[in-house]
Simulated assay, not measured.
Amino acid sequence: MSSGGQWEQARAALAEPDPPAKCRRVAALWAQVASGQWVPTDPGPPGDLPCGRPQRPEMVPPSQLPRRGLGSVEGRQALIHAIAHIEFNAINLGLDAALRFPGMPDGFYRDWLSVAADEARHFAMLNARLGELGTTYGDLPAHNGLWEMAEKTAHDVLIRMALVPRVLEARGLDVTPGMIDRLAAVGDEETVALLQVILEEEEEHVAIGSRWFRALCAQRKLEPEATFRRLLEEYFNGPLRGPFNLDARRRAGFSAEEIDQLAAMDRADQPA
């Protein structure tokens, strides 16, 4: 069945400022989808979509974030907090994508509600790990780059699919393996196990973005690779910087041409 009541629940989850309550709302909503109680269809015009966030963490420029070695508890707290903040924003991104863009196929709404549910689970896992290390989400500052790009792409679903999952979230595919190696080197196997789960599931999130980006390009009779390059130039002032996890990006829907371009960008970044 389909009902406007569930979309109101999704709006309430997006507007919820308390992180644990937001996670519970999203989990309950996804349980209805996963069980077949609700088949999400076009929610209609989005209207106002307030996004709930807690008063903390304090938002600062990326240059002001603490940088500490992972050999200390404080360093691991800072890293995990930064990832938890990304996952919290990603909950809102999944909900916002599902609510903001009417006129899409039913699978689009299911996909982005599924992403929101995964991100809520990831956030809860990371915040529990922060608790084990003596802190919690909000205790450290964070930056707001991911959500700023969501706001810049709110006017066009194609641009949102191109730039949020395929650029910003795909960056997680590139950097997480290195984080896992560094955490393993200092013996933090608990956090390593969490990041391995997150890395595997985030690959599918990027793939969802790739599928819908390509579907929208086909609908608008646009060439995907050229469109992606144009949007990078427009929104990021040029090519991306490596290193890139080419295998993960390939599995997440990047074409052979895009993989070749990323490899060339990576080589251009290397010192001569």
Rank of each mutant, 00 (worst) to 15 (best):
A150L: 13
I91Q: 01
A185K: 07
P165K: 09
I198Q: 01
R121P: 01
P50E: 12
D260H: 09
V60I: 13
R230M: 10
M125D: 15
S2H: 11
G138V: 07
S35A: 10
L262H: 06
G103E: 11
G36K: 01
D96K: 13
L93F: 03
R241Q: 11
F101G: 06
R182H: 04
E148S: 15
N237Y: 14
P177H: 00
E234T: 11
P61K: 04
S63C: 12
K22W: 09
E189P: 05
S63W: 10
S72F: 10
G75P: 05
D139A: 14
G134K: 05
P62T: 07
R25I: 09
A252G: 03
P243G: 06
G138Y: 04
I208Q: 08
G75D: 03
R24K: 14
V60D: 02
Q32P: 14
L70N: 00
A15I: 05
A252V: 12
I180Y: 01
P105F: 08
E202Q: 09
V167E: 15
Q55F: 06
P239K: 14
A142W: 04
A98L: 03
R250E: 14
W7A: 01
D118T: 00
M59Q: 13
G178K: 05
I80K: 04
E234P: 05
A34N: 05
A272W: 11
E16F: 11
P141C: 03
D156P: 15
Q55W: 14
A82M: 09
V175L: 01
A90S: 07
M161W: 06
L173A: 01
V197L: 09
G209Y: 02
E151W: 04
F123I: 00
A263L: 07
L194R: 04
L140G: 02
A15P: 12
R160E: 13
W30V: 00
L199I: 00
P17A: 09
F236I: 07
L79Q: 10
L194N: 03
G69T: 08
A162C: 12
C217D: 09
R129L: 08
L173Y: 00
V167T: 11
D174C: 00
E258F: 02
D247E: 11
S255A: 04
P66H: 02
F88C: 12
A264S: 14
M104N: 15
R11C: 00
A82S: 15
R76D: 02
D181K: 02
T135D: 10
Q32N: 14
